[in-house]
Design a protein around this nucleic acid. Structure first.
Length: 425
RNA sequence: GGAGAGAUGGCUGAGCUGGUCGAAGGCGCUCGCCUGGAAAGCGAGUAGAUGGGGCAAAACCCUGUCUCGAGGGUUCGAAUCCCUCUCUCUCCGCCA
């Protein structure tokens, strides 16, 4: 959420941000209501001032005195007017809230203007793409041939865009979760968190999934609960409506959760394989930082995520998102894209974002810069470290062997009792 | 699921026979005194949000309004009375 005062004073900046991001929003409707609300507010506050003053006079004079009786009669009228005006204000507030929550964050200065992903900028790449003498298989074929991935049975018990892992496949998924959490908590200084997989509406609103993107989420019928689309939601909301101490910052969390996405607008895209699932695992990194440090914290966060790919020896590149591909809430975003040999392309495996104070304002996450000073909104950041399903896909494809087996990356072998290879069951 | 108790400032905890209560006391924190330095002790200050004014502006000062879990109601006036909801705790039942 943007600061209402900022929107009021810089409407053209907001309008430009919406254009560049390709987001719609009722900015004019917001401004009209803001003006109306401010006028009404002035009026009602004056009436309340009178009421407060006179009520105190009645209290001092004694409620039964003749003068008080007369004052009471006058105040009855004023109270009725106040009630009417308050009702109008409540309506305006609700209408403004909805519009304000639907305005996107302002892109950072360094974000390139662009229309879609073709305008993203490659900042750097790492690793050597593997060369194969044999026919390169897609990860779904590799996994199915080995008997470690089963899409037909997942379809039977749940539906399309679900997967069942067996044996070494299941173990690989589990190993990756442990490996990533171990790395981030012991080497990179994150604190491990294990949050609920269901969250309420206030949490979804706090991080920006609601009200605008309701159709992307799974809602539990008959309740106020949503399946988390990412650990970003529960973890960022851990500190909702809190005032943090300056010496606590930065707060860095690493959390594993399953993630659930309706993929409403994705019919026909990535229908095969592990790339786009209704349920997938992810280790997420979340930071709460001082505003002046969020730029450098985003760089650190991105390097922390990159480290996972480096240790797994998976080739990747780092992309700076252009305005059109940035999304609603981030001010700046890097995507890590891993090399998938079968598709002969890079695919997003991590998304690292600086939300500046956009989420913090929605969720009421503040800190006190110094004792006795006024509170300020923190900056929040998060990034995947990494998406586990897509990592499995990348390992299967990059480490495939001519005989159909798959080499287990060295750093994962401790999680496999030293086993070096996944072979047919 | 049944019965009961509760939700107050950064924390703890009074107030809850409606008015002088944005709210005692304690802890914590900040500043000052004391000290070679620290502890202890003493003194002062210390909730959040938002609007207006002083000001070029920040700091700061003056001032209005709102907030005692959330929302509604009664009343001239609500932390205090009534209703609804949410959450927490205790006991019983059930359960991984």
């Amino acid at each position: 959420m943007l600061d209402l005062k900022f929107v009021r004073e810089n409407p053209e900046v907001v309008r430009r941000a919406m254009e560049q991001k390709g987001e719609s929003g009722d900015l004019d409707g917001l401004l009209v209501r803001d003006k109306e609300r401010r006028d009404l507010l002035k009026e009602v506050e004056e009436l309340k001032q009178i009421r407060n003053r006179v009520s105190k006079e009645i209290g001092r004079a004694g409620a039964d005195s003749e003068a008080s009786q007369q004052k009471k009669n006058e105040m009855r009228k004023i109270s009725t007017s106040i009630k009417d005006l308050d009702d109008k204000l409540r309506r305006l507030d609700a209408e403004m809230e909805l519009r304000l929550l639907s305005l996107p964050n302002i892109p950072d200065q360094v974000v390139p203007r662009g229309k879609d992903e073709s305008d993203n900028i490659e900042l750097r790449s790492w690793g050597e793409k593997p060369r194969f003498m044999h026919n390169v298989l897609a990860h779904w074929d590799i996994g199915s041939n080995l008997g470690v991935i089963d899409f037909p049975r997942a379809g039977k018990i749940a539906g399309s865009r679900f997967v069942v892992y067996f044996g070494a496949g299941a173990r690989l998924e589990r190993a990756l979760i442990s490996f990533m959490l171990d790395l981030h908590t012991t080497e990179h200084g994150y604190r491990e968190v294990f949050p609920p997989f269901l969250v309420n509406e206030a949490s979804m609103t706090g991080t920006g999934q609601l009200p605008k993107f309701a159709e992307d989420a799974f809602k539990i019928e008959g309740t106020d609960l949503y399946l988390v689309p990412t650990a970003e939601v529960p973890v960022t909301n851990l500190h909702r409506d809190e005032i943090l101490e300056a010496d606590q910052l930065p707060i860095c969390y690493a959390a594993y959760t399953a993630c659930f996405r309706a993929e409403a607008g994705a019919h026909g895209r990535d229908t095969r394989g592990l790339i786009r699932q209704h349920q997938f695992n992810k280790v997420e990194l979340v930071k709460f930082v001082r505003p002046e440090e969020s730029d450098q914290e985003l760089e650190k966060l991105t390097r922390d995520a990159e480290k996972v790919l480096q240790l797994l020896k998976l080739p990747y590149r780092v992309m700076l998102m252009c305005s059109g591909d940035l999304g609603f809430a981030p001010a700046k975003k890097y995507d890590l894209e891993v090399w998938l040999p079968a598709a002969d392309t890079y695919r997003e495996i991590s998304s690292c974002s600086n939300f500046t104070d956009f989420q913090a304002r929605r969720a009421g996450i503040r800190y006190r810069p110094a004792a006795g000073k006024k509170t300020q909104f923190v900056h929040t950041l998060n990034g995947s470290g990494l998406a586990v399903g897509r990592t499995v896909a990348a390992i299967l494809e990059n480490y495939q062997q001519e005989d159909g087996s798959v080499i287990i990356p060295e750093v994962l072998r401790p999680y496999f009792n030293g086993q070096e290879k996944i072979t047919e069951y």
